[in-house]
Computed example of a mutant assay.
Amino acid sequence: MNSPTHDSSSDLVRWAAFSCVLVPVVLVLYGTSLGGAAGTALGLAAVTGVCRVLLRQSERCAARTPAEENTAHRARHSRTHSATPRGGRHSGGPSPVD
């Protein structure tokens, strides 16, 4: 089953693609040259493509982040710290001087 985020981003890309077709048609109907409308269509398609790539990358990062945090969290707590002292005073190394 698709997540709500995936559905909304797919819908957004579909509407953007629809706009890439609709806007040039409207421009031609209102008297813009075919070359100008084609240039507009190419520009909108380029922007739509870049936005789609960025949305997909964002979705992948959002899906990957919780899994990585769980792995890092478990790894941090599974380490043994037998060589390092826990609290209190220790006599190793130089101490800072005021």
Rank of each mutant, 00 (worst) to 15 (best):
M1Q: 03
M1I: 01
N2M: 03
N2E: 05
N2K: 06
S3Q: 01
P4N: 00
D7L: 15
D7I: 15
D7M: 13
D7T: 11
S8K: 13
S10A: 08
S10D: 02
S10Q: 04
D11T: 11
D11F: 04
V13E: 11
R14F: 15
R14S: 15
W15S: 15
W15R: 14
A16C: 06
A16D: 04
A16T: 09
F18Y: 05
F18N: 03
F18A: 06
C20D: 10
V21N: 03
V21T: 11
L22M: 14
V23R: 01
V25P: 00
V25Q: 01
V28E: 14
Y30L: 11
Y30S: 04
G31P: 00
T32L: 10
T32Q: 12
S33D: 01
G36Q: 12
G36W: 09
G36S: 13
A37L: 03
G39W: 00
G39T: 07
G39N: 02
T40P: 00
T40G: 00
A41P: 01
L42D: 02
L44Q: 02
L44H: 02
L44D: 03
A46R: 11
V50F: 03
C51I: 09
R52Q: 12
R52W: 12
V53N: 07
V53M: 13
V53Q: 09
V53G: 10
L54Y: 07
L54T: 05
L55W: 02
R56L: 15
E59M: 06
E59D: 12
R60N: 09
R60C: 07
R60Q: 12
R60K: 14
R60I: 06
R60H: 10
A62Y: 07
A62T: 11
A63M: 10
A63D: 04
T65M: 08
P66D: 03
P66V: 03
A67P: 00
A67K: 04
E69M: 10
E69D: 07
E69I: 15
N70V: 14
A72P: 00
A72W: 14
H73V: 08
R74M: 05
R74A: 12
R74P: 00
R76Q: 14
R76L: 15
H77I: 06
S78L: 15
T80D: 10
T80C: 07
S82F: 08
S82Q: 07
T84I: 15
P85I: 04
R86H: 13
R86I: 15
R89S: 14
H90F: 10
H90G: 13
S91P: 01
S91L: 08
S91N: 05
S91M: 13
S91A: 12
G92L: 14
P94D: 10
S95L: 13
P96N: 03
P96G: 01
